[in-house]
Amino acid sequence: MHGHVQPFEVHFDDLDAMGIVHNARYAVFLERALSQWWASRGHSYAGGRPTTSDVMHAVAEYSISYRSPVRGTGEIGVHFWVETLGESSAVYRFRILSADGQTVHAEGRRVNVKLDPRTLRPAPWSEDARSAARELLAVPVEELAQQR
């Protein structure tokens, strides 16, 4: 499987009045899973400050389709990968899965744009971030080169 699956715990406060995960929480699950993955590679916030300039990015686009509700608390999986990596953008795809990976609860797309911290204009990813992001590519860079 390409990308990464981050195990994730659903808590009681993630649920709505019907006992299913509230729709807005799915975006939070992805945000936290991505943050954990990037932090493990040195890209995070420490002491209220970014550890690298690549942490400075904005979500330019977000879409999600709900397939099957997550009912109650317990473990799920957040599967994410990079569909395309541009000069200053990254297109993520993601799925919220049951703990066993058999049920897709939701799936979607998120586009991030790296920003220059002074101008808030798009800026290129560092080579370190690009190298890390390549681990998440759905199609390895070598295969993309062969397809051209």
Rank of each mutant, 00 (worst) to 15 (best):
H79R: 15
A39C: 06
V141K: 10
V111S: 11
F80N: 11
Q147Y: 10
L97N: 13
R67D: 09
A24W: 00
V78N: 12
Y92A: 09
S53Y: 03
D128M: 04
G77W: 00
R32K: 14
V10T: 10
E9K: 13
T103A: 03
M18T: 06
A123W: 03
E107W: 10
A39N: 08
E142F: 07
S65C: 05
V91S: 13
E87W: 04
D116V: 04
A99N: 08
S53T: 14
H43M: 15
N112D: 11
H79K: 15
L137S: 09
R118L: 11
E75T: 15
S40D: 15
V5N: 13
R134K: 14
I76Q: 06
D54M: 01
N23E: 01
L34G: 03
D54R: 01
G47D: 09
T119W: 05
G74E: 13
G42Q: 08
L115V: 08
V28W: 00
R25M: 01
L115N: 06
E127H: 01
H2R: 14
G19R: 02
V141D: 07
E107K: 11
L97F: 09
E87S: 13
H105R: 03
R93W: 00
G3F: 00
S68R: 15
V104K: 09
F94G: 10
R25K: 08
G101E: 07
E75L: 12
R130Y: 02
H43N: 13
S68I: 07
I96F: 14
V28R: 05
P117G: 06
A129G: 02
E107Q: 15
D54L: 01
V91Y: 02
Q102C: 10
S65A: 13
R49D: 10
N23T: 02
V111G: 12
A90E: 03
R130S: 05
F8G: 07
R71D: 03
H22S: 05
Y92P: 08
I96E: 04
R95H: 11
V82N: 10
V78C: 13
G101H: 09
H2V: 14
P7D: 13
G42H: 06
S35I: 06
G19M: 06
A145E: 12
R148N: 04
W37V: 08
D116Y: 10
P50N: 09
H11C: 12
F80S: 10
W81V: 13
T103L: 03
S131C: 12
R25S: 00
R71P: 02
A138P: 00
R130F: 02
A133F: 14
